[in-house]
Write a protein that binds this DNA or RNA. Structure first.
Lengths: 153, 153
DNA sequence: ACGCTAGTTGCAACTCGTTCGCATCTGAGA
DNA sequence: TCTCAGATGCGAACGAGTTGCAACTAGCGT
């Protein structure tokens, strides 16, 4: 199985045992954070939230679990145009890929699902004979609000 | 001027003085590395190459110059799917944006220019009322050669 | 040609996100 | 219930990138 299929929210923990991956107190806490997160948490935010559920969770366990989730294709790692330092952000991998737009002025992150994007990936598969597993399209610029305010027209 | 225009290779140094940016020995070395690089150098590779031209170039000067070039929109910063550690790669910003495809098996990087990509960005501008300044589309997967060899069909 | 100074540099010490080594602990199958 | 592969916490280490500072220099005005 090259890539996990589309899935509904709330299933992370189930997917874990389905795949024969050992469940622990700490992982349960981290998975639950990922499942309930509205979006785009970085490692230290995940740590803090996980510790509210199980105070024993350690930084390194968060990183190890994130690496595991990433390798299992259950979460995506984002850079978000490095809008706040060099760290990474994580989000559950659900349904279709989406574009991330980062406003360089106010820092807001918007998401956008587009058929064009799907077509583009298909074109890459076909024209480049390249098997697409992960794709990340990040755009930096100015959001509607900030366009009006000042920044370039 | 929100974004620099398309330009021909070999002009980095000229663009510098056009913009009234002071030219130094060290910057000349770094610019020349960027101009002659075939592609995708990381900071430490740039440092090593620049030191062959001017041995006095320091790591921090490389980083400072890269930041300057980035801010001037003369180079693009890439992650290349973090295929080798967490560093960044740099390339001159010429003509049109292109997609970067990183083979997760052999590590090769391929590039692809696509009208679909341009259309997609236009769609974002229009549908999201978002002014696109920088865009980065990176794809991880298997290149034609590696697809045949083993990895998933 | 020369002096001035804002801008640039090298250096070493630092930050920050992430990883590692290792002794200890634990989930879950037999 | 026993067992042990696999997971954990801890602290030390890593690597990329940044910073403070004193010394230097590009290139303007004279």
């Amino acid at each position: 199985m090259p890539l996990p299929r589309t899935e509904m929210p709330g299933r992370l923990q189930a997917q874990f045992s389905e795949r024969g991956i050992r469940m622990t107190e700490q992982r349960r806490a981290i998975l639950s954070v990922m499942e309930t997160a509205s979006k785009h948490l970085d490692a230290s935010q995940i740590l803090r939230k996980a510790q509210k559920i199980d105070a024993s969770v350690d930084r390194s366990t968060v990183y190890r679990t994130l690496r595991l989730l990433k390798r299992q294709g259950l979460i995506d790692e984002l850079d978000l145009m490095h809008i706040n330092g060099e760290g990474h952000y994580y989000e559950r991998r659900l349904g279709r890929d989406h574009i991330h737009m980062a406003c360089l002025r106010c820092g807001k992150i918007a998401e956008f699902v587009s058929d064009e994007f799907e077509k583009l990936k298909q074109q890459v598969e076909k024209d480049c004979r390249f098997r697409v597993l992960i794709s990340r399209l990040e755009i930096g610029g100015y959001c509607a609000a900030c366009r009006g305010a000042q920044a370039a027209g």
